[in-house]
Computed example of a mutant assay.
Amino acid sequence: MSDEHAAPSPVVPGGRRRRRGSGCLPILVVLAIVAGLGYLGVTRGIDELRDRFGGAEDYPGPGSGSVSFEVFGGNSLSTMGQNLEALGVVASSEAFVEAAKEEPRSSGIQQGFYRLRSEMAAADVVDLLVSGDTRGTQYTFLPGKTVDEIVELLARDTKLSRRDFEAALKDPDALGLPPEAEGSAEGYLFPGSYVFFGDSTATSILRDMVARWRSAADDMDLDARAAKLGYTTRQVMTIASMVQAEGSLLSKGDRRKIARVIYNRLEQVSPNPSAGFLQIDATVNYALGEKVARLTIAQIDSVADSPYNTYRTKGLPPGPIAAPDSTSIDAALAPADGDWFFYVTVNLRTAETKFAKTPAEFSQLEAEFDEYCATQSDRC
């Protein structure tokens, strides 16, 4: 949590803790030289001599705000200092190195992420790094996870419980969910790597994931591009989630083809009996709460009343079914040009996917998949 905004701390030349103070000899030397340089002007002489004899620039602290700082394996104290200075945590790399050399435990600073503040005293930074009290843990979430799967991972790997996350999910405003999410975080917990700290709460963790989605959405101009396609942001996110679930191992080009199949089926106006039915296995799996590579008629019929059963219900499901990455969102925003209405992943090992325009072509692809399954029954 960030501290209250404060006025920038003054830079103190040679500022250190009292226990690390220096003797009076440099001061006597400064006074003697200043007396002999009167023609330079008192102010100018003091400034120049302070730079020469005052030591490294340092902030008095305690600092403000929140800065995430990463220590890489093999980093020297000098490299850490340079990185800290670049982030505005310390006034100078030299001040950090000097403070670290006075701390015997500085050789044991562990790699990882640390939460610090802007404009800290160098000695305070060293104390936090060697203590490890503000060291965070990095978590990586793969694309295509549902909210339930993400919560399960977080409850397993953090000190927080599933109940904590479920309670946080009931307050969409606290999570920063956009209005188009309609109160559900499904699809809006953006995949990627995050650093969580000891005092992170379920709300702060989920809020960070939603904020990352918002940043990615803004970078892609999601709202405007969705409107240009004639769809709402929620509808495009729903399509992106299906593209992710169906084509997570595919290239961007093939994901754009899957998006085109979805749009073609949604916009189909011919008397074809399948017009308007997406017939996407991933949505049925979402309704089942499973991930079945090849659905049976019985499985499809078992969730016949679910709005996520796109074999039985026309149009888009009510919302996203998983968390899509940027590639899948972009594919939904920029579908390929083509008149495909079908696709089949004919090889589950390589994820090779082929596209068809007619029912006859689709039947040929299904036969190819049947042949694959006949020799790879453990995958089908």
Rank of each mutant, 00 (worst) to 15 (best):
L222Q: 09
K291M: 10
V261Q: 04
A304N: 10
F277Y: 11
S302W: 00
V243D: 03
N272Y: 07
T310S: 09
T238L: 12
Y231P: 01
L249K: 14
A298M: 07
T283Y: 05
G247Q: 10
K291E: 07
Y263P: 07
A287L: 14
G315Q: 08
L288P: 11
G247K: 06
S302R: 00
S270H: 07
L249E: 14
G315R: 01
G230Q: 01
Q279W: 02
G276I: 03
Q235V: 13
P273V: 05
L278P: 09
I300R: 09
P318K: 04
Y311K: 08
R255G: 03
A275Y: 00
T296W: 09
R256Q: 14
P317Q: 07
Q279I: 00
T296P: 13
A323S: 15
S270N: 10
R207H: 09
T310G: 05
Y308V: 02
A304G: 07
L278A: 10
G276S: 01
I239F: 05
Q299F: 01
Y231G: 00
I300G: 04
V303Y: 06
D218M: 15
L316E: 01
G319S: 12
I300F: 11
A287W: 10
S241C: 02
D218P: 07
S215P: 00
M242H: 03
P318G: 06
A275L: 00
A275M: 02
Q235I: 10
S306Y: 14
D208Y: 00
D221E: 14
R256L: 13
A226R: 02
P307D: 02
F277E: 02
D221P: 00
L222D: 05
P307R: 04
G230D: 06
I258V: 13
G230H: 02
S241A: 02
D219N: 12
L249R: 15
D221V: 05
V210W: 12
P317R: 08
S302K: 00
L288I: 04
D305K: 08
N264S: 13
G289C: 01
R212C: 02
R256G: 12
N272K: 10
S215I: 13
T283D: 05
D301T: 03
S302G: 15
M237S: 14
V284G: 06
L266C: 08
N272W: 13
I205N: 05
Y231N: 00
R214N: 11
V236R: 08
S270D: 11
P317C: 07
A224G: 03
A304S: 12
N285A: 07
I239V: 12
P271S: 09
L316D: 05
V269D: 05
R312Y: 06
K228Q: 10
V210M: 07
S248V: 11
P273Q: 06
M237A: 13
